[in-house]
Structures are given as structure tokens and as C-alpha cells.
Amino acid sequence: MGIRVELRGVSYIYPGSKSRALKNVSITLRNGMCYGVTGPNGSGKTTLLKIISLLYKPTDGHVLYNGTDPWGGDITSYRKRVVYVHEKPVMVRGSVLDNLALGLRIRGYNGDQIKERIERIAVKLDLSPLLDRNARDLSAGQRQLVAIARALVLDPDVIALDEPYSNIDFRKRKRLSRVVNELRGKGKLVVISSHDIGLLVSLCDYIIYLENGEIVLEGPAGEVYRELLSEH
């Protein structure tokens, strides 16, 4: 069954902060689609992605997963359906393999299942040569890829990637884009934030443009792109 994520009048204030990082955001995200989120630094992209991935509870308004509010029920069971990959991901102690296994272990998979799933994702993202490396010795780009693999290996319904391309080399970018397309093809809901509008337009179906925590522009990728071009 597909998934539909709705934000209804969502505002978010960071604890201890006075101003709203997100202001009254409403949008509906559907499965089988890729959404690109862009906007200037500090406009609220990261905050929006974390709201979608159920890491932050809206200060005002609601997030709905298929019409129900996860925050009103068993949040952990909803969190198991969505992943968020940090722009500068942290690695836990141990090898790359240990890191890839982290979420699977949390979910109680057994050794064979873990091995099989990791092998599959490692081939897909070209991580096999890295598996035995100490995860904390990796370069920024390698870490980012490992973190993406660590999330995708869980086979989630909703995938939020925060600036996934920022440290990735040209060849890996193409590989990553292929993976994103494949996910969309499998009916997943993908949300990607980036400053590279061109890339988002080539990859995604729908673009959300944020400024000061508000959606100032949204629509099908091509339209938004044309609009932005004509503006600047």
C-alpha cells in the first residue's frame, strides 16, 4: 500500500528559540514521487525534512501519515517507515559493516538477513570495498554514501535525504540518481533537499521553494524551474 504524507499548517520553533523556523506550512506528498526542496541557507529545508521524517514534533499544526497523526499514537512504529539522512552524518564506532547493520539490528533482523541485505545495498552504491574499513576514517563523501545505504537498507516507505549530493563525486552522483529513480519506481516517497536546482529539476517531479520558513513557490519541476529562471 502506498503512503501519503500531509502537513497541515505546520509551524516549528526550536527549543529555546523565539522565531519560527517553519511558518504555517501545508503540503501533501504522495508515494511514487520525488520532491525537491530548495531555498536559501537557513530557509528551513532541514527543519522541513525532519518534520516529515517524524524527528521533530510540530509546534503547531499536524503531520498526517495516510490521514492519521503519528504523534497521537505509537510514534516508533511510524518512524520505522521513514528514514532521514543527515547532511553530515555521524558514524557509530566500528566498521562500515557495523554501521550498515545498525538499523537492521535495532529492528531485530537475524545475522543472515542482515548480511544479505547489506550485500545488496553495498553493490548498488558501490560500497563493497569499504565494508571492513573503520567507519570514522571515511571521507565526507564516503560517509554520506554509507549513511544513505544505512537508511535504504531498511527498505523504508518514505526517504528524506538532506543535501545528499554535497560531497559526492560525479560518478557516484549518477549512481545515486539511478537509485533515487528506482525508489520512486518502486512506489516510495522521496524528499531531497539541495541547493542545486538543476539537479533537483532533473531528478524530481515536484519542487518546493522555501524562504524564511515559508513555501514561497511550489509546483511541478519544470514550471518552478522556468519561474525561478525568469525571476533572476
Binding site: L55, R79, V83, V92, L102, G103, R107, A151, L154
Partner: peptide, 21 residues
């Protein structure tokens, strides 16, 4: 690590354990 654990679907207890580890 708490945030990392939550993104991977951990319960509060599992997240606390990961932080501790």
C-alpha cells in the same frame, strides 16, 4: 546518536542505549 537512532526506527529505549554505547 539519539537522532541517528530515531531515524533508523529505534524506540526511545533503544536510542538511549545507543547514546550510552
Amino acid at each position: 546518536y539519539r537522532e541517528l537512532a530515531l531515524t533508523l526506527g529505534a524506540s526511545d529505549k533503544q536510542a538511549a542505549l545507543l547514546v550510552f554505547r
